[in-house]
Design a binder for these strands. Structure first.
Length: 425
RNA sequence: GUGGGUGUAGCUCAGCUGGUAGAGCAGCAGAUUGUGGUUCUGCGGGUCGCGGGUUCAAGCCCCGUCACUCACCCCA
C-alpha cells in the first residue's frame, strides 16, 4: 500500500529541489547584496507568541502541537513574531540599523488552492530602527531585486504601494472616527476583488453618513497620488499633506533605486493585518491572474506589542508558491547544473579499487567526479557517462594500465589521449 | 465550512453500444565483454481510488464514500 504525501504539501524530487534552491539562492543573493544578515528561529513557537500578535482566532489556522509538556506549541505560520521576540530579547545590544533576512519553511492549516498550500517557503526581509521612507524603499527594492534575479522584469510584475497612515489621515479628515477606520480598511481591501456595486454596498453597510460615503467612494477612485492630492485639496489638512509628501518621497527613493518602472500607487492595497502603520505594498503579476507574490509594510508598533521597546520597523514576506506559479508561466527555470569534471570507468572488475582511489584523489583536489559502480558493457557505461553531462571520461584498466597509463576521452570532441597515472592528479 | 471538476502503469493519457486492461514517455536488460546521444528487441510495473448495487458479465451504468484539484469564505 503506497502512502501519499499529506494534503496540500509538495514532494521535492531532485528536479523540483533544484528549482527551489535556485529560488532560494536568488533570495539570499538579493538580501546579502543589500547588507541584510541571516537569522533563524525555531520551527515551532509557543502558541502564546502568535496569540499575542494576532489574537485567538489565529489558532484555527495553526498547526498545533500536542505538547508533552505544559507549553502549548504551534508550527510557525510566519516569521515576524519570532523576529519580534528575538529582537526584543536583545534589543538594547543590537547594532542599528537592524537589517535581517530569513528563508524558512512555514505551515498553515488551511484548505489548499492555487498558490496556497499547507507548507511553503517564505523569504522575509526586515529593517528595524530606521524611520522614514528611505527604509521602506530599501526593503521594497530588495523584494524586487530578488525577483529580478530570477528573470522577472517590470513587464511581469508590479509593485503596488499605498500608505495606511495616509489612509488614516484621509479618513480622519473626512470626520470618520478612528475606531471605524478598521472597518473601512476591511472593505477597501476588497477593492479589485469584488465588483464596484458590491463594494459600494459594503461601504454603505459600515453605517457612515451619506455625505461621508459619497466622499469615500470618490476617494477610492483615485488612480494616483495626484488624484489623492486634488481630493485632499478641497479641505486643507496638515496631516494629509504631510502623509502625501512622505509617500512621494518613498516613490522618489524607489526611482533612485531604479525600481520606478515597477511602482504604482494603489489605494486598494491595505493588507489584512491590523499591525501595519505606514506604507504597505504588494507585488502582483501584471496579468493579474495570481495572488500577491509578496506583501509587506511598516509596522512601527509591533515591537511594543511584543514586549520590547518602541522601534520603527518595516519588512515583507514572499512565499515560494505563487512565485513558482509565476515563474512557470513565464517559462523561467534554473540554469543547468555545472557538469561533472570526470567520470571514471573500470575496465574489468579488478580495476574497481583503482577507480575508487583515483576518484578520491580527484575529489580531494576539488574536482567533481563520479564513476561506474561496476565494470561491464563499455558502450553502456559511456552512455551513462554521457547522460551526466560529464566533460571527460577516464578509462581505467586494460593494456594501458599495465603501462601505468589511462585513456582520457573528451566527451564533446570524442578525442582521446593517454596520460600517465602519476601525472593525473 | 460551501460549491464545481477529476480519479485507469512512475508520468501523460486511450479504452467504442457493458464482453474479465492498452499506448507513448520514463525505468531496467539485451543486440554490443574496448568506445556515447540514433535504432531494434525484450522485461518489470495496474485489486481501473475504495465500498456497495444492477447484470450471465462493470474501467464503462446507478448509489455511497475517499482522495486530489479549482473556486468561495478566510488570509498573518
Amino acid at each position: 500500500m503506497k502512502i501519499p504525501a499529506p494534503k496540500y504539501t509538495r514532494d521535492f524530487y531532485p528536479e523540483e529541489m533544484r528549482r527551489r534552491e535556485w529560488i532560494e539562492a536568488a533570495w539570499v543573493d538579493a538580501s546579502r547584496a543589500a547588507g541584510f544578515l541571516p537569522w533563524d528561529g525555531p520551527i515551532f513557537e509557543t502558541l502564546e507568541l502568535y496569540k499575542r500578535k494576532s489574537g485567538n482566532e489565529i489558532v484555527e489556522q495553526l498547526f498545533n502541537l500536542a505538547s508533552k509538556g505544559s507549553q502549548e506549541l504551534a508550527v510557525r505560520p510566519e516569521m515576524t513574531p519570532s523576529l519580534a521576540r528575538m529582537i526584543a530579547n536583545r534589543q538594547a545590544s543590537l547594532p542599528r540599523p537592524i537589517k535581517w533576512y530569513t528563508i524558512g519553511r512555514m505551515c498553515r492549516y488551511e484548505r489548499g488552492q492555487r498558490g496556497r498550500l499547507r507548507e511553503f517557503w517564505q523569504w522575509n526581509v526586515d529593517l528595524l530602527g530606521v524611520d522614514g521612507p528611505i527604509a521602506d524603499a530599501e526593503v521594497m527594492s530588495v523584494a524586487v531585486d530578488g525577483l529580478e534575479r530570477l528573470g522577472l522584469t517590470a513587464d511581469d510584475v508590479a509593485l503596488r504601494i499605498n500608505s495606511r497612515s495616509l489612509l488614516s489621515a484621509l479618513l480622519t479628515s473626512l470626520g470618520i472616527a478612528p475606531d471605524q477606520h478598521a472597518r473601512v480598511y476591511g472593505v477597501t481591501d476588497k477593492k479589485g476583488k469584488v465588483a464596484q456595486p458590491e463594494l459600494e454596498k459594503l461601504y454603505a453597510q459600515i453605517g457612515l453618513s451619506q455625505e461621508t460615503l459619497t466622499q469615500i467612494l470618490d476617494l477610492m477612485n483615485s488612480q494616483s497620488i495626484d488624484d489623492v492630492r486634488s481630493f485632499a485639496s478641497r479641505r486643507s489638512d496638515e496631516q494629509v499633506a504631510k502623509e502625501i509628501a512622505k509617500l512621494e518621497e518613498l516613490f522618489s527613493h524607489l526611482a533612485s533605486l531604479e525600481k520606478g518602472p515597477y511602482c504604482q500607487f494603489d489605494i486598494g492595497i491595505v493588507r489584512g493585518l491590523a499591525y501595519y502603520t505606514g506604507p504597505v505594498f504588494e507585488i502582483f503579476d501584471r496579468k493579474g491572474e495570481l495572488r500577491a507574490v509578496c506583501g509587506g509594510g511598516r509596522y512601527d508598533q509591533l515591537m511594543e506589542t511584543m514586549g520590547g521597546q518602541a522601534m520603527p520597523a518595516c519588512g515583507f514576506g514572499m512565499g515560494d508558491v505563487v512565485l513558482g506559479e509565476l515563474l512557470n508561466e513565464r517559462k523561467l527555470a534554473p540554469p543547468s547544473d555545472s557538469p561533472l569534471d570526470y567520470y571514471l570507468i573500470p575496465m574489468g572488475d579488478e580495476r574497481l579499487a583503482d577507480v575508487l582511489s583515483l576518484t578520491q584523489r580527484f575529489r580531494k583536489g576539488g574536482k567533481k567526479v563520479d564513476y561506474s559502480p561496476k565494470a561491464g558493457n563499455l558502450s553502456k557505461m559511456l552512455k551513462k557517462a554521457s547522460e551526466t553531462g560529464v566533460k571527460s571520461v577516464i578509462l581505467v584498466g586494460g593494456e594501458e594500465w599495465t603501462r601505468g597509463q589511462v585513456k582520457i576521452r573528451d566527451m564533446q570532441s570524442r578525442e582521446e589521449r593517454e596520460v600517465s597515472i602519476t601525472d593525473l592528479v
